[in-house]
Every structure is written in structure tokens, then in C-alpha cells.
Design a protein around this nucleic acid. Structure first.
Lengths: 144, 144
DNA sequence: TTGAGTGCAAATCATTTGCACGAAA
DNA sequence: TTTCGTGCAAATGATTTGCACTCAA
């Protein structure tokens, strides 16, 4: 019984093939996926089912929507993946994860100062990555 | 000659009525506006012109797109408005501005640590505002 | 005057809805 | 068995494109 199965079970939702396939596609991806991306990984799933499943996943805290560049993208929530944010290089389009305590601390400070309770936040960065800054396109030589 | 006129002039773009009207709608609004919102303020402007103008404004750093809740919303860039972020109360739907140095400092720290240069960032918060937390709906009595 | 911008019509693409059938529990 | 979930068809809504006309510079 996977985490996914368990979560679905406590929600009293059925574990079907489309749902498993979509969850796996998101789980395998190292980057957030757009609706189109997901469809490529799930050729045999009806587009309507995709929409309905993603909506259900979002409502039940399995998937969250993030916005990078122009389109909506989907990725697993912190329940299934460590909490992080994204940095997109506008030169090479590469998306990397960023997880730093500074952001979370800043949110705490801000919420106390303004007297509100923050339940969710969006934090995404864009710019030029270290590889593109140095003009080195062969990033395998550097690390990664 | 307004800031807008001057900016358009340096970009060698024409200052037309639709462009002025759309800019004013965004300038008058205290909150970011969706396409639909803008249209309500600009009844006589063709929807196609709206799309084309917003795209042009975005490319030329007059307007930026932000994502609050589900839909895309548009607001003037820091060129025409002080830099800030948003907090949306999921109870009363009210959107308020947040401008704190903590976020910008966190971004500096993070960009140095990761070795990339950040040219733009998205930072939006959601939660419960001070008025809804206290169950006080008559917020005029508190301050605002 | 003249090319950038606009508006209209229509195409294209994204998302939603209704309904009958299939399959998890 | 009995709902819940899926797929199909089709509606609706959002965004884009082509083209002829208008107007800011």
C-alpha cells in the first residue's frame, strides 16, 4: 500500500487506473508539469478525466498549482514531496528547486507584523542560472 | 506629458485611446485586475485589442501578470507603482498589499547561495486576515 | 501621408457539462 | 450490488489570426 493508496483511502476516494497513472506521471517528473505535459505521459486517458482528476487532486491536497512563466503547472504537494520553490533560468529554460529557510522565516515575520495567518504561499524566481552566467553550456562538467 | 506618455514615446509606440483607457483602468484600481475586470472598465474596447494591448504592455514592462487564486491578473509594474506583493484573505476575498524588506533580503541571500541572478520574482500569500480572524466584519471600526 | 493600431469575423484552443456505461469497493 | 468514476459528444469560454479600415505621428 503506497502513500497514495493510503491517502486516497482515508479520503474515501477510489484508486483507479487513470488516477494512479496521473499520480505516477507527477511523481516521476523532476519538474512541474502542464496539462499538456501530463497528457503526453498519459496518452490513453481522456482529457476530461485529466481535468477532473487534477481538480480533485488539488481540492484534496495531493497536487498544487504553480505558475511559472505563462502557463499553469501542476506538482505534488508537500505531502508527497519535500517543500520547495522554483527558479527558472530564462536563458536555458531549466527549472531547479530552491529550498531555503529564509523565505519561510520572512513569511513568519510578515504574518506576525500584519496580523494575518498565512495558509499558503507562492514564491517563484526567474533569472539567469550559474551555467548561463558563465557561458558554460556543458553543465555536466560543472556538477549537476 | 504623463509618465505613461513618456514611456510610450521612448519605446516608439503610439499613444492611442484604447491604450490610455486600459492604462488608466489599471492605474485607478487598488487591486490587480483580470481580463474580465478590465473589460468592465473599458466597455467600448474590443476584446482583441485588450489582449493585444496587455501583451504589448507586458513585453514592454508596463504591466505584469500575477496569479492570485485561479486566474491571471494584471497590474502596473514597479515603474508606475511602488513595489509590493499581495495577501488574499480566503474568507473575505479581500486583497491587501504587502511590502516588506524581508522578502527582498531573502531573495538576495538565496541568489548568492545558489549562484544565480534573479531578475524577477513572484511572491503571493493567502490566508485569513486580521478582521476575519477576530470575527469582526466591520473593519472600518478597526482601521483601514 | 503612411505605417502602426484597431475592430470585425472567424478560427483555434482550453475547459466544462450531461449522460450512459464500466468497474472499484 | 451499488455508487463512483470514466469516456464520449457537445457546449461553452478563452485566446489567436487574417484582413481591411482608421488615425497618431
Amino acid at each position: 500500500m503506497t502513500d497514495f493508496d493510503a491517502h486516497m483511502h482515508t479520503l474515501k476516494l477510489r484508486v483507479t487506473n487513470p488516477r494512479k497513472t496521473i499520480f505516477e506521471a507527477l511523481s516521476d517528473a523532476s519538474e512541474p508539469l502542464s496539462i499538456g505535459d501530463i497528457q503526453k505521459h498519459c496518452r490513453d486517458i481522456d482529457r476530461v478525466t485529466l481535468y477532473r482528476t487534477l481538480e480533485m487532486f488539488t481540492k484534496n491536497n495531493i497536487v498544487k498549482i504553480i505558475h511559472i512563466g505563462w502557463k499553469k503547472q501542476y506538482e505534488l504537494t508537500d505531502l508527497f514531496q519535500p517543500h520547495h520553490h522554483h527558479f527558472r533560468c530564462t536563458t536555458c529554460q531549466d527549472i531547479s528547486h530552491v529550498s531555503d529557510s529564509e523565505v519561510e522565516e520572512a513569511i513568519d515575520t510578515i504574518s506576525i507584523r500584519h496580523g494575518f495567518t498565512v495558509t499558503s504561499h507562492q514564491f517563484e524566481l526567474e533569472g539567469t542560472c550559474r551555467y548561463c552566467l558563465t557561458g558554460n553550456t556543458n553543465r555536466e562538467l560543472l556538477n549537476k
